[in-house]
Amino acid sequence: MKTYTYTEKKDTRSGFGAGLAELGRTNPNVVALCADLIGSLKMDEFIKENPERFFQIGIAEANMMGIAAGLTIGGKIPFTGTFANFSTGRVYDQIRQSIAYSGKNVKICASHAGLTLGEDGATHQILEDIGLMKMLPGMVVINPCDYNQTKAATIAIADYDGPVYLRFGRPSVPIFTPADQKFEIGKAIKFTEGTDVTIVATGHLVWEALEASKALHEAGISAEVINIHTIKPLDDKAILDSVAKTGCIVTAEEHNHLGGLGESVARVLAQHRPTPQEFVATNDTFGESGTPAQLMDKYGLNSEAIQNAVKKVLKRK
């Protein structure tokens, strides 16, 4: 079995910052907007190098989304930066009308998604954002898994013409994907080959899925781990090809089971190949204060939870 290791941990938001800085150097149409969270979004380098292409909006996210839509008229490629909660729920109608329905080329870049925001608690820990954004017609939804993938995704979405929601996080997590990767929107990545169960994971749960697959291997269970970084458009084929072989699937995400990756996968399976599925996700709940590790443990979003879900789904084959 192919195994993955890491030598360094970094936050995915820094991958966004590095990608944005590179875009600042290579694409003169890229502009950045922020609602008073420059440091949290790691936008400093872009701003330092391109002060004329940066717009500090202040604490006014609705205005930021509208201004971003307006900037596209004139050929700019705006990247907005704030927390995931304030990038989605707070400004849903602005995104819906001025960006999605209007077909504007805005990149909504959202940090501190999910429980791993930690101590700030439920007001800031959005677990509904993937659902909100994937329901908007034409919106691409991406949730990369580590620093390198987030950097690559940030760079890649500048070349895609249309609205994109890019979701990333705050905690330091293992870097296990290559620095020189080419990011393909909508293309799943198979990390391990397996025959007993498919594990489909997104964001911070991808590393946990790889950890789970190691433990499962030792227990004699062969797991195929697939990284779905693009939740919409979903790589249906990668999922269907894998379950054709394994016959069961576990989905894993730092999000509510309602509206998340798991539901998107379930729709594909229900239509094309009904398959036993278990969901590693939060269960229709808000988060709370705590360290990221404590929260992921309490809400069942880690390697152990994935292993348990695999054991459960295997019995349903």
Partner: peptide
């Protein structure tokens, strides 16, 4: 929503 959009277009 229109004023924000107009501002963005003006800044572009």
């Amino acid at each position: 929503q229109g004023m924000s959009v107009a501002i963005g277009a003006a800044q572009a």
